[in-house]
Design a protein around this nucleic acid. Structure first.
Lengths: 192, 192
DNA sequence: GAGAGACCATACGGCACCGTACGGAGGTCA
DNA sequence: TGACCTCCGTACGGTGCCGTATGGTCTCTC
């Protein structure tokens, strides 16, 4: 079933445009009329596919939730060596922050009633997976959880800082490499 | 010069109310008319003290910038032992996140043209100070900077996570204690 | 106690967005 | 070909906010 390129819009088209808007201007940028103009349509189309703005925001968040997290986990989990897995995860997420404005934008609206539950699910999933990586390395559950939490919060803060003040995070290839090496070394250091 | 309690408002009153509003509802909550209602005044008062909304936002941010950061640094810097200083800093900021909504709210608007420079100044100051703590401990400058960055980003992420999903950060006194101990141990572990 | 200036209330116009009402174009099937 | 359904454009009213205009009130000063 071939679909004409722009003539008719689907709910998914709107959700995708909404997610783009979140990346550009945060949750507040998900506004029906500007989005319609951007899509070359009008509100008439939108209110056919969605009941209201909240429904659109929810759809965009569902898209985000299903997307990045699981993709990264699958990618990282393909690495067999436990220590290399941790390094791969950190390298992946610490560099991805440079080109993923959606991540920080969602975090920025953490208090929003629609964002909060989605963010909670994603955070728990990520934290659980990260803690698992440290258990795979042989750390007991409680300590693995603490190390995973440190790793996860460091990632969150890194994303935030890289977005707000890029000059403060390691930028060159070599510097970033060295930083990631050191973080992995510290996070996996044997217990005192 | 005694001042009647509410009858006449000063620019500082407005700036304080704006900072409160940021804590409650983010930067978007700094709206003249709702703030006026909250202060029991009208826009007439506001536009006497400020040229426009941006001027109020700027004043609130200046208040935030001058406030917390330097206070924490002075408090922590009073501790003579370098290692204890790091622990004190982490314990202070990691627990303060529970009752400081302003911090995350400002971070949430990092992209705002008025917020960005203020946030950049504060971040640089904090990061520099944290790196200094690790130099005090004997680490060479480059490594101290990397460890300071890890500590600082972990704090940022912790604040974010504690605000968005409180259930995911250590809550009990003992758990938090243990977590902070472990973070300090890992951050100050001797180089491999 | 009158004038000046600081401070504020009221009223207004404007803008950007939300949501609804309704009509019309295009395809589908009898 | 005509009835029908899907999808969308247009037009409208409503809301919340910004900023301005203007006049009033309080306080200080001489």
């Amino acid at each position: 079933m071939p679909r004409p390129p722009v003539s008719r819009l689907t709910a998914d088209d709107w959700a995708g445009a909404a997610l783009d808007a979140i990346g550009r201007g945060g949750l507040a940028a998900v506004a029906v009329e500007p989005l319609a103009a951007r899509l070359g349509a009008t509100k008439g189309s939108f209110y056919w596919h969605f009941a209201n703005r909240d429904a659109l925001v929810a759809a965009a968040l569902r898209r985000w939730e299903d997307g990045h997290t699981e993709a990264v986990i699958r990618f990282v989990d393909a690495e067999p060596d436990p220590r290399a897995r941790i390094r791969l995860l950190l390298a992946t997420v610490l560099t991805s922050t440079d080109h993923d404005p959606v991540e920080v934008a969602v975090l920025a609206s953490a208090a929003h009633p629609l964002v909060a539950p989605a963010l909670a699910r994603v955070s728990r999933r990520r934290l659980d997976y990260t803690a698992q990586l440290f258990r795979d390395l042989g750390f007991p559950a409680a300590e693995a959880h603490r190390r995973g939490l440190l790793a996860f919060t460091a990632y969150l803060g890194h994303a935030q800082l890289a977005h707000a003040t890029p000059a403060l995070v390691p930028r060159g290839r070599a510097d970033r490499q060295r930083y990631i090496d050191e973080v992995v070394a510290l996070l996996t250091a044997p217990a005192a």
